Lab assay of single mutants.
Amino acid sequence: VRLVQFQKNTDEPMGITLKMNELNHCIVARIMHGGMIHRQGTLHVGDEIREINGISVANQTVEQLQKMLREMRGSITFKIVP
């Protein structure tokens, strides 16, 4: 398990697509080339996201998580399992 932190201070999309796997874990499905996450190089396709800013992603839908990420500003921390 590791923590990945980055800054999001604009309306620029993060450039990641999330999916739920068969165990209902949140997985990074795709990283858009040239997007914020791609430029930082901190997340990778297949990484499992456990928490966003200390909030568990368990029992949340992809749509709920994407909305939460769109609305966040400032420092964002993901707890991930590579």
Rank of each mutant, 00 (worst) to 15 (best):
V1A: 06
V1L: 07
V1C: 09
V1D: 15
R2F: 05
R2Y: 13
R2G: 04
R2P: 01
R2D: 05
L3P: 03
L3A: 06
V4Q: 02
V4L: 11
V4P: 01
V4C: 05
V4H: 04
Q5P: 05
Q5C: 13
Q5S: 15
Q5L: 07
F6Y: 07
F6I: 11
F6Q: 02
F6C: 12
F6H: 05
F6K: 02
Q7E: 15
Q7N: 14
Q7R: 11
Q7T: 15
Q7H: 14
Q7M: 12
Q7C: 14
K8M: 07
K8V: 13
K8P: 04
K8L: 11
K8Q: 13
K8F: 04
N9G: 11
N9W: 08
N9T: 14
N9E: 15
N9H: 11
N9K: 15
N9M: 12
T10W: 08
T10D: 11
T10L: 09
T10R: 09
T10S: 14
T10G: 12
T10H: 09
D11Y: 04
D11H: 15
D11P: 08
D11I: 06
D11S: 14
D11T: 15
D11L: 07
E12Q: 09
E12Y: 04
E12A: 08
E12K: 07
E12S: 07
E12N: 04
E12T: 09
P13G: 11
P13T: 10
P13R: 05
P13Y: 05
M14L: 13
M14W: 10
M14C: 06
M14A: 08
M14H: 04
G15H: 02
G15W: 03
G15T: 01
G15F: 03
G15L: 02
G15M: 02
I16C: 06
I16S: 00
I16H: 00
I16N: 02
I16A: 06
T17L: 14
T17I: 15
L18P: 00
L18V: 07
L18I: 09
L18A: 01
L18D: 00
L18T: 02
L18K: 01
K19T: 12
K19V: 13
K19A: 14
K19W: 05
K19E: 11
K19P: 00
K19R: 12
K19N: 10
M20V: 10
M20P: 03
M20H: 10
M20S: 05
M20W: 10
N21F: 03
N21A: 04
N21L: 04
E22K: 13
E22M: 08
E22C: 07
E22Y: 14
E22T: 12
E22S: 11
L23P: 08
L23C: 14
L23V: 14
L23R: 15
L23D: 15
L23Y: 15
L23A: 15
L23N: 10
L23G: 15
N24D: 11
N24H: 13
N24S: 10
N24E: 09
N24Q: 08
H25I: 08
H25W: 03
H25E: 14
H25T: 07
H25A: 12
H25P: 01
C26T: 06
C26H: 04
C26A: 08
C26W: 11
C26Q: 01
I27W: 05
I27Y: 13
I27S: 05
I27V: 10
V28K: 00
V28N: 00
V28I: 15
A29S: 09
A29V: 07
A29T: 08
A29I: 06
R30V: 05
R30D: 12
R30P: 00
R30Q: 12
R30K: 15
R30F: 08
I31N: 01
I31R: 01
I31A: 02
I31W: 01
I31Q: 00
M32H: 13
M32R: 13
M32D: 15
M32L: 08
M32T: 14
H33C: 11
G34F: 03
G34A: 04
G34K: 05
G35P: 02
G35M: 06
G35H: 08
G35A: 07
G35T: 12
G35Y: 06
M36V: 13
M36I: 15
M36W: 15
M36Q: 12
M36S: 15
I37T: 06
I37K: 03
I37V: 14
I37P: 03
H38A: 11
H38G: 07
R39F: 03
R39E: 09
R39A: 11
Q40N: 13
Q40M: 09
Q40R: 07
G41C: 06
G41I: 02
G41V: 04
G41W: 01
G41L: 03
G41Y: 02
G41E: 07
T42V: 12
T42L: 13
T42D: 13
T42R: 10
L43F: 15
L43Q: 00
L43I: 15
L43R: 01
L43W: 02
H44D: 11
H44Y: 08
H44C: 12
H44R: 09
H44I: 05
H44S: 13
H44V: 11
V45E: 09
V45K: 04
V45D: 05
V45H: 14
G46E: 04
G46F: 01
G46R: 02
D47T: 01
D47G: 01
D47V: 01
E48C: 12
E48H: 07
I49D: 04
I49A: 01
I49V: 13
I49N: 01
I49Y: 00
R50H: 05
R50M: 13
R50L: 15
E51S: 15
E51N: 01
E51A: 07
N53M: 03
N53V: 00
N53W: 00
N53R: 02
N53D: 04
N53C: 04
G54C: 04
G54I: 00
G54F: 10
G54K: 07
G54E: 08
I55Y: 09
I55G: 06
I55P: 00
I55Q: 15
I55N: 06
I55H: 10
S56E: 12
S56W: 04
S56H: 07
S56G: 12
S56M: 07
S56Y: 06
V57M: 08
V57R: 00
V57C: 10
V57D: 00
V57W: 01
A58N: 08
A58H: 08
A58K: 15
A58P: 03
N59D: 10
N59T: 13
Q60R: 13
Q60S: 10
Q60F: 14
T61L: 03
T61M: 04
T61F: 02
T61P: 09
T61S: 11
V62E: 14
V62L: 12
V62A: 13
V62G: 08
E63A: 09
E63I: 07
E63L: 07
Q64W: 07
Q64P: 03
Q64Y: 13
Q64F: 13
L65C: 09
L65A: 05
L65N: 03
L65Y: 03
L65Q: 03
Q66F: 04
Q66A: 10
Q66P: 02
Q66W: 04
Q66S: 12
Q66M: 12
K67M: 11
K67Y: 09
K67I: 09
K67H: 15
M68N: 12
M68A: 12
M68E: 10
M68W: 09
M68G: 09
L69Y: 03
L69S: 02
L69E: 02
L69R: 00
L69A: 03
R70H: 14
R70S: 12
R70P: 04
R70A: 14
E71M: 09
E71F: 14
E71C: 11
E71L: 08
E71H: 13
E71V: 11
E71R: 12
M72T: 11
M72H: 12
M72G: 08
M72A: 14
R73T: 13
R73N: 15
R73H: 10
R73M: 08
R73Q: 13
G74K: 03
G74E: 03
G74W: 01
G74F: 02
G74Q: 03
S75E: 11
S75V: 14
S75W: 10
S75C: 12
S75R: 12
S75M: 08
I76L: 06
I76Q: 01
I76R: 00
I76D: 01
I76S: 02
I76K: 00
T77Q: 10
T77I: 11
T77D: 09
T77V: 07
T77H: 05
T77Y: 06
T77E: 11
F78K: 00
F78M: 15
F78V: 05
F78G: 00
K79L: 07
K79G: 10
K79I: 03
K79M: 06
I80T: 06
I80D: 00
I80G: 03
I80F: 07
V81E: 07
V81P: 02
V81M: 09
P82Y: 02
P82N: 09
P82R: 09
P82C: 08
